[in-house]
Design a binder for these strands. Sequence first.
RNA 1: GGUGGUGUGUCCGAGCGGCCUAAGGAGCACGCCUCGAAAGCGUGUGAGGGUUCACGCCCUCCGUGGGUUCAAAUCCCACCACCACCGCCA
Length: 419
Amino acid sequence: MIDLRLLRDDPDVVRASQRARGESESSVDALLGADEQHRAALVRFEKLRAEQKGLGKQVARAQGDEKQQLLARTKELATAVKAADLTVTETADALRAAHLAVPNIVADGVPAGGEDDFVTLREVGEKPDLPSVRDHLELGELLGAIDMERGAKVSGARFYFLRGVGALLQLALFQCALAQAVEYGLTPMITPSLVKPGTMEGTGFLGSHATEVYRLEADDLYLVGTSEVPLAAYHSNEILDLAEPQRYAGWSSCYRREAGSYGKDTRGIIRVHQFDKIEMFSYCRPEQASDEHLRLLAWQEEMLGKIEVPYRVIDTAAGDLGSSAARKYDIEGWVPSQQRYRELTSTSNCTTFQARRLGVRYRGEDGKPQVAATLNGTLATTRWLVAILENHQQPDGSVRVPKALQPYLGRDVLTPVRP
RNA sequence: GGUGGUGUGUCCGAGCGGCCUAAGGAGCACGCCUCGAAAGCGUGUGAGGGUUCACGCCCUCCGUGGGUUCAAAUCCCACCACCACCGCCA
């Protein structure tokens, strides 16, 4: 949710942000109107309520006839108060709905436009020169590392088994990532994969992402699509000490319905219903957020360096940000079989947008609670295996293990289990 | 799954229809005392919102959501969490 005070003081900033996203400005005016109506309703209610409380005290003291007269008046008042209260509730609900409909204000410097209007900040690493290219699934099958066929037999399309060196490789990658996180002072976390509706809603994933989310109807719980959800809600309705940013690295399985992506990336483990991920999450003061964002990005690049995969860093355009983010950087790794870059990480600066909804605050210099800023960024996912396998493949189908992962895997090359 | 109990401010804890504008204590902050400290004494001590140029005034919040009443922390209903015991499973 955006800051309503900012909206009242400077609605044009919000309108400009909407234009950059390619979204309608009418939602801004709807929010302004809802805010005004709500405040008017509040004033009316509070006036009546104050009168009711005052009279209530007189009733308590009065006797006989006087009491009866007072009771007659307070009865009328009670009806009026009830009606005014109902109006407050209604306008509050309308305000909330209008509030939720306005996405975060785009940060200065974010490229305008849609999905294809990103700006490439840099390209790093040498693309491998491969005489013949096997894709990750072919390699995964040769190595006995990925079993899509049985994934489909057991669970359906877009499910898979990681087996043998595949399972070990993922664990090695994740342990490596977690070790880096710990080295930089992040608190490692293993988080719940099922969350309550309020948690899912509070983190903003029931908005435009709603169709992406698995819901367990019998228990009214949701499967998370990222540990960002439990990590963001972890400190909800708390007042934190943010002298230093509080940083976490959450390890969880992630579940996505991938509705509307029929036919896209149907081969292999690039787009699947379930995968694992280590997600960094940071709570900090708003004025530190953009520095913190670059810090998360640097840590992601360090991890990419460790798996020795060529990548590019892109500054996502406003129209492709998602509602919570003010700015988003993606790192895309080179996928030789597709001769293009594919998203491996994403880091978002949500400024105060997410924290406001979740009630995450800190004490400012004056001791008053202020809304915190939140940021998140990927540190490793199952999809990285695609880039690792393909970029380090050798003509015989074996795969070189990046140096940084060797200690965690206990070997420097993965060899086919069948020719 | 069943039965019973509990849920109050930073914490402990009283309150069980109307001076609750939430007692009392602890903690914390400041001040006095002191060479300094402890003890003691005094003062203050939550969040959100509305309104106002401002001082201030007002409203909401006693697990959550409903309800009863002129009036709810207090009564009723539902839900949630925690504790205890029983059952079941490992």
